[in-house]
Simulated scan of single mutants.
Amino acid sequence: MSKVTSMTNAVRAVNKRPFRVSIEGNIGSGKSTCIKYFDKYHNVEKHAEPIQEWRNVSGHNLLGLLYSDMNEWSFAFQHYVHLSRLKIQTSPPSNPDITVKMFERSVQNSRHCFVENAKKQNFLQDSEYEVLAKWFDYTEKTLDISLDLIVYLRTTPQVVWERMMKRGRAEESEVPLDYLQQVHDSYENWLNSPDVGCEVLTIDADRSIDCVKDDLERYSYKILGGNHTN
């Protein structure tokens, strides 16, 4: 067991918090479908990505603004995403029977995937990047945002681009294939890093949803932290 994993387990034991599972993957990789698969487990609290919240921040559609001009809106969007993910990740469970907390993407994803990509593509000024990095560093030092497992729905950019075009979200209509490639590369860099901080379970999500569900069932014991209570 790694030092990071040992520390994570110790923190979770002391705080008696639920087992935290982050469902990660590119746009259109099937994260929402994956989370819905676990509806049958009553000990699992599930949180989809708060897209509706991002679409209406006191009347401002930050998601739409981001895709309309990433140079102009990446800083504001990533700042708000950090806040919304932080609330999901650290809020207490809805009832005492919850032993697993599952959410679509994580605070760590925002920092190590999307913020890094925005910096690499010059969507963020150096000063904006430093503000976001320091915001994350402070969060990590002062709050327990640790993850216990990442389920990575690994896809190829062409496949998810085709899926994205079929589902037809208005904000995504202008997203180019190049951007999905950038997100994919950022995921690969982050989740193959020795500093990822927890175990990563990789599932081939280029396949049909039925094949993915078969894997979710096969690995459900691991995904649920070794607890099958429902």
Results as ranks from 00 to 15, higher is better:
125 Q>D: 13
52 Q>M: 12
194 P>G: 09
75 F>K: 08
98 I>M: 01
203 I>L: 14
128 E>R: 03
66 L>Q: 02
37 Y>H: 14
4 V>N: 05
122 N>C: 10
157 P>L: 11
84 S>A: 15
27 I>N: 08
120 K>D: 01
73 W>R: 03
78 Q>Y: 07
75 F>L: 12
152 Y>G: 02
148 D>C: 02
75 F>G: 05
154 R>V: 09
184 H>G: 00
26 N>R: 00
161 W>Y: 13
51 I>Y: 10
108 Q>G: 11
159 V>Y: 08
225 G>N: 03
220 S>R: 15
124 L>P: 00
126 D>R: 10
192 N>H: 15
51 I>W: 09
178 D>M: 11
132 L>Q: 01
208 S>W: 04
136 F>R: 02
33 T>L: 07
193 S>I: 04
162 E>Y: 05
157 P>A: 15
109 N>T: 15
108 Q>T: 01
86 L>M: 13
120 K>V: 01
166 K>N: 15
119 K>E: 03
87 K>E: 08
60 H>T: 12
200 V>M: 08
197 G>F: 06
23 I>L: 09
86 L>I: 08
12 R>T: 03
1 M>V: 12
155 T>E: 06
218 R>W: 08
120 K>N: 09
36 K>F: 00
30 G>D: 07
84 S>E: 13
136 F>E: 04
142 T>P: 05
49 E>Q: 10
168 G>V: 02
106 S>K: 01
5 T>P: 00
130 E>Y: 09
204 D>A: 01
47 H>T: 08
79 H>G: 07
126 D>A: 12
195 D>Q: 11
36 K>H: 10
77 F>P: 03
141 K>N: 10
86 L>K: 06
76 A>F: 09
92 P>N: 11
199 E>A: 13
62 L>M: 13
15 N>H: 13
179 Y>H: 14
187 Y>L: 04
27 I>K: 01
224 L>G: 01
58 S>E: 13
